[in-house]
Write a protein that binds this DNA or RNA. Sequence first.
DNA 1: CCCCTGGTCTTGACCGGTCCAGTACGTCGT
DNA 2: ACGACGTACTGGACCGGTCAAGACCAGGGG
Lengths: 415, 415
Amino acid sequence: MGRTPEGARATARGFLTSSGAAAGPPAPGTAAQAPGPDVSTYAGAHDVPDGVAVARVTLQTVADRVGVSRMTVSNAFSRPDQLSEALRAKILAAAADLGYVGPDPAARALARRSAGAVGVVLTDSLGEAFLDPVAAAFFGSLAESLAPTGLAVSLIPAENVGGHVPARDLAVDGAVVYACAGETEAVEWLRKRRLPLVFVDQDPLPGSAGVLLDDRAGGRIAVEHLLALGHRDVAVLTMNSDRTTPGWADAPRRGGSNHVARERTAGALDALEAAGLQGRVYEVVDNHDHLIAPGVAELVADPHRPTAVVCFSDLMAAHLVRAAQAAGLTVPDDLSVVGFDDSVHAHTVRPALTTVRQDFAAKGRLAARALTEAIARSRAAADTGPEDAEPTIEHIPVELVLRDSTSTAPRDARG
Amino acid sequence: MGRTPEGARATARGFLTSSGAAAGPPAPGTAAQAPGPDVSTYAGAHDVPDGVAVARVTLQTVADRVGVSRMTVSNAFSRPDQLSEALRAKILAAAADLGYVGPDPAARALARRSAGAVGVVLTDSLGEAFLDPVAAAFFGSLAESLAPTGLAVSLIPAENVGGHVPARDLAVDGAVVYACAGETEAVEWLRKRRLPLVFVDQDPLPGSAGVLLDDRAGGRIAVEHLLALGHRDVAVLTMNSDRTTPGWADAPRRGGSNHVARERTAGALDALEAAGLQGRVYEVVDNHDHLIAPGVAELVADPHRPTAVVCFSDLMAAHLVRAAQAAGLTVPDDLSVVGFDDSVHAHTVRPALTTVRQDFAAKGRLAARALTEAIARSRAAADTGPEDAEPTIEHIPVELVLRDSTSTAPRDARG
DNA sequence: CCCCTGGTCTTGACCGGTCCAGTACGTCGT
DNA sequence: ACGACGTACTGGACCGGTCAAGACCAGGGG
């Protein structure tokens, strides 16, 4: 007892004394405690008089009030099976009376070594990322799939602003990296922290799990559909953020830093080559309205305009359709257009787009599962030492949806 | 010194001894330290041999390695002005060598009493929320506006699933509540936690800040535009989640639980009444594709179809336009349509929508500012006692954008 | 020569929980 | 009557930082 006065943890400035109701000077204005085990009429912290610094209510405060140990109060909230129902009810009542909501999340995160949240790194600037319905849909689906596990989703900016580095300083148990071209600064930090990572729509780093669409097959089936309709002059409309102006690609298969764009284009070119044809590739700078518009206008005006175009996204396809219509062409009679994703744009344009559908819900679900598994694995490894289960790479199948933006090639253009 | 052996915090199982490089048995395989201040060739923790439980690297580990106190290492990372540049470099080098990335976010959150993140509660299920471009745009804009302050954004589900309650258990410094109809369970918890709250597109709770669009004015200017074009039979197309089937509203001004829908409708009715006209209100159940489609089909087929419709959202307007076209009508000649929001749908449909524009970027920016201010205020209040600065309610102006979906009323319908 | 000031680093006390290894008490089997 | 066992609760040691105040040492003015 030479160490510390009674109750090693008693709050220093709280107006409640450290042990039981008997000891210590009575709190100002407090009448004698009402007899009986029930909650006294003494008003709790939730209506403290103005100007009085509100004492911080912690487990200890509640424990002192009820006359049990801190640990028992903790159990009342976090492990109800560890104490009698009667005592638990009493503790909960006291807590409610004191305005104690529950264990402090930050303290719990530290003690439990788990934050209850995962990070998500998105492609672009945050503002633009959610303009893309594909990214937004994935994000929503991920969050929804994660909800039942109790993990919340936190947005981590890919690039830092204002000297803050959330990727380094945010408490998360793992992270999803979505379609980040190459190695972002944020990803670098996450890797250094050795957080469980899942890469989506992007090649995973060695040792990490991945969830990828079968983009190559998507490009292929889009072209095969057009070939079956008799088209021989098929172009690909895609993006390449390495360039600064739209135009025909010199090295079609090289593509830019975007994995998805490269794969989709490659799939389309594969199918064309398999048919003994050579595909042309028209690249715009990025998948944003203002960057697509000038490109498609030029593409439509091209004297050697193809009879059919496979697009990197429904957004591009929708722009292309409207540009064609504005130029007096009819879709699909004069120009067949295939989209990609089956996002809002696909059924919003007229004619509705024939497109390669991807299953957003599945993507979010698989990413959620891969991440929770990676987190579980990493926790297990902390105990039993590293076991090397090969991280998985999931592939999501795609499917061609036939609508109204494709038809047989014009008579005079057929081989 | 009778208390604890040297270095009260020396990690128990770390293979590095507690104080300085001189004392204790040399780590296995460690040659004599190379002379000079530079980093020795001894491999740090980042390539620990397989099977060896990796010792947890903390501030203390780094401090021991360099021979300084834990606090000095902390300062090296968090407050560079508190120590000499030379020592800082040495510490940073040692940290890098040991694989120490930076202060543990959870521990820091506890000690600093700040999580570095804020929560966002969205209307619907998470999966559906991001299908709505308006919600998605706001979310992105909020996250982007918050980024420079170093605050990350975490999604908090409005309703709990699987027994987890993120709204209670997630470490956040404050939260934004976006267009939640009425009092959600999540909001209830946030309120109990006394977190700084900002309400967007929804009436703020007393004591909290709010960011609201001038929805009523929006409804008004939409109608005024149509009146100016000679329309006398104007209907409102809106949502009311209290009902289960679409149809004409009995009590138009009552509306449902959605604040935005009520206001927009009220504004439109105000303008009609001011012109001595009576407005009709057609309600669908919610602002989702599958709930809108049957409603607009019925509306278009109505024998007493109005000559112009003011819609709750661009999404509804786009559906209405397409339904009208499918029924053989021409927009705007047979039916004028005004949208709301100026979201993707507005410039995606043909004809492009005349619509009431709202400034998404401003909404995110104002919400971010209101929240950071509320957080700052709450921190100040913890020190100096509560001061009662009236929380602000910001109103964002709207603006009518004229496009191609409205025109003068048909000759035979004009009063 | 002394005191004051300022830059560096250290010390001890927190932040508010959870984990784990007890201890105190029934209760049951024999 | 006695040891084994289960239940209910407690105590101390963490989790990994930050904060506020103090110690030490240098240079500079009076």
